[in-house]
Design a protein around this nucleic acid. Sequence first.
RNA 1: CGGGCCGUAGCGCAGUUUGGUAGCGCGACUGGUUUGGGACCAGUAGGUCGCGAGUUCAAAUCUCGCCGGCCCGACCA
Length: 575
Amino acid sequence: MRLSQILIATLREDPADAEIPSHRLLARGGYIVKIAAGVYTFAPLMWRVVRKFAQIVREELDRAGANEVMLPIIQPKELWVSSGRWDRYVTDGIMFTLKDRKGSEMCLGPTHEEVMTAYVNAQVNSYKQMPVNCYQIQDKFRDEIRPRFGLMRGREFIMMDAYSFDADVKGLDVAYQKMRDAYCRIFERCNLRYTIVQADSGAIGGAGSEEFMVVADSGEDSILFCEASGYAANVEKATSRLPDAPAGGEVRPMSKHGTPNVRTVAQLEQFFPGWQAGRMAKTVLYKATWKDKEAVVAVMMRGDLEINEVKLVNALDAMAVRLATDDEIKAATGADTGFAGPVGLSDKVRLLGDLSLQGRTNLLTGCNETGFHCLDVNPGRDCRMPEFKDLRLARAGEGCPVSGQPLQQARGIEVGHIFKLGTKYSSAMGATFMDQGGKPQPFVMGCYGIGVSRTPAAAVEQNHDDKGVVWPAPIAPFEVVVGMLDPKKDDQVKLAEQLYGELQQAGVDVCLDDRPMSPGAKFKDHELLGLPVQVFVGRRAAEGMVEFLIRKGLQKSELAVADVKGRVLAALGRS
RNA sequence: CGGGCCGUAGCGCAGUUUGGUAGCGCGACUGGUUUGGGACCAGUAGGUCGCGAGUUCAAAUCUCGCCGGCCCGACCA
């Protein structure tokens, strides 16, 4: 391919709205062009990158026995009602919806469990037809609350989504493991540094799930891990060994104390010398929303620890929670914010407590009276016993649940997510097959996603320098560029064409930069574009010498023409 | 949805406070000179100043409404 025939429009200045390296470099390199918030055009070079990555995904999924299909983007409301997800997705505002000319409601698919389940249900009637695993590489649409970071969080994006259908949990386990292995091969083939973490299964639901995280400072997810044990989890899901706190001792009588304007744990430590945060139970009020109702709930947490809202949502089986407002707190407790507690709490308010408080004695808590707190509160005696759940946010430095070593923290970009769904969707939608006993059974499903447009952006996060992108060769738009520095000089043109032909013959994905630009501009352009291997034919062409550049580290050397092919193949690891 | 801010040429921005001829850099185009680190000279084109209403002799500038976008937070397969 000749670059003079490809639309390449690099920018000289950084776009004003780009925050993170991948967004900045992809926009400046002309790889992506924004058309609306979170909606991008993929320029020719970027589309080559996406196609290369998609091809790797295809090869590995096909090898794992999955079938590629193409599902519709436009989906009828009824399908989503049948799985029970229409309301949640519409309430959350995450789904683009539209009406057809008859007024029937439709949506642009944010995910395809429903469509795929309906499809497979119509085709598969017997356990003999399974296992089945189908996938597609397709545009997805989500009206994200806050699109940002270029391709990282768009409102239209490309995703591979696969769905496995098995007759039983054993089959699902096999399908899941196959996909997990395929994912590892995919990300390894792209030379990405990634880690697999235990994850919350979120809106998709289901039993178990793991995320594939590309480690990068700009990642939106926080992960905790332990090198000693290999434990790694999204902070939403992570647990840790409970940090020590001073024991409460023998049960004592409760006492109530005036605490004017003392509202926070830190202020209480000041006000009651000797009462450390670990002996307090803070009570935080949340407004929780379910499909058909909403309510304020109270959550007790040891004073030195934090609440994990994702765990809280799961414990309540709610759609969402948020901190209650001052007015809602006053209405639920009768007291101003900062004085809520289990003592004297109305029976109407559901009370949860973190496991860290189970069995603890003589706590310091609020008592739902503005300006007062209680000492030596003993749940079960002085107040209701809360429903104990794991609601705690694990933090770096706390002990790994497996090894006890301090957990470390890193940022990650979620590029893949695999779930064991079980029968959640098949049961809801009545998707069944006949088992060996002739009885209808719901399909046991798994679902598996890879961010096909996000992964190349994540690759840029991991592979760039201050000059530009440094593409990993397997997903680079071209592996090699042969650049003629002066297209007016016959000897340069001739030699560049010769090398270009030779490399093509050798099976290298090579392009010829025959654009009429000054040498300096051409060098800068290629530093920004970031093709892995760059060969420049310049003023020493007549002597049969060219310049050879490895983009990673910008290592340059002069090379005789005869050695070019060998060096290129070696650089690409194909010698 | 809450808080902060922005919208002026393809891109990056000034001009708005204090109303009075719409500017700068980069890019683009033409001609010439250049050709190893985003060249130089000369010239040219390109703007309903986001949209609508209002105030005014006069609005990019003031007022109101709307739309779009960015950042922080909440949110997020």
